[in-house]
Amino acid sequence: MVGIGYRKDFSEEFLNSDIISPSFIEVAPENWLGVGGYWKKQFQKALERYPLFTHGLSLSIGSPDELDFQFLANVKAFLKETGAELYSEHLSYAKCDNAHLYDLLPIPFTEDAVKHVAERIRKVQDFLEQKIAIEIVSYYTPVAPEITEIDFINTILQEADCELLLDVNNVYVNAFNHKYDARQFIEQLDLDRVRYIHMAGHEQVSDSLIIDTHGEAIIVPVYDLLEYTLELLGRDVPVLLERDFNIPEMEALQAEIRKLSNIKETVLKRTAHAVA
């Protein structure tokens, strides 16, 4: 399965042509919750055609602030109403001192933050009565780190007993920005927990910095990293193409979807043979 992030920017073209054929769509509940009128109709049409995966923005699982259970109740209702197959969120914080920031900030890699975040993921899972998938975010600076990133992530996954959304592009971006080996990083992850994969493009703004823009096509090394990841996984995991800005022609998006499907198929065949 290869899906695409469904965006208002291309909704009209997306629904009125057969150029693009994803296996599912993904939306942020925040962008559609409580929305009626024109957009509700468009969304309804999309839901009639495609299974839905969701990827939240404002839960702020890593925040020092209290969890917003009113908001979570709305999300829960949305997941039920839309029959969403999955709810994922970011391993970051987007709200602090009772103010939303509308961006994903890096959590300090510390032991206390691990405990704090894991406890909150458990609470969210209990409330939603389902497991959630947590995404490793791209980050541009560490914040008062005391433990390694990999320990931070793996311990949270284990203590929260949640699933992992592995954004391969984010790992690539982080490995570049923080000068480590992306493959080694992926090898060390608790791969049994991978439920969902994200793929996207980025923008290199200097010799030492890549910004995770979701505004460009996926580059070859990130495709290679996906192939490597799928080989390690040896099983079928849904893959999503994220494109949030600088949206190209539908044909270009479909070409990326096709490429992702091809990689998946090839690797799955290869690993099936290896097992047999």
């Binding site: 602090c96 900030l105 890096p106 510390t110 914040v143």
Partner: peptide
């Protein structure tokens, strides 16, 4: 969450 961690998060925000 330790006070210290909370403070760093607040400072970044």
């Amino acid at each position: 969450l330790l006070k210290q961690t909370r403070q760093y998060q607040s400072e970044l925000a």
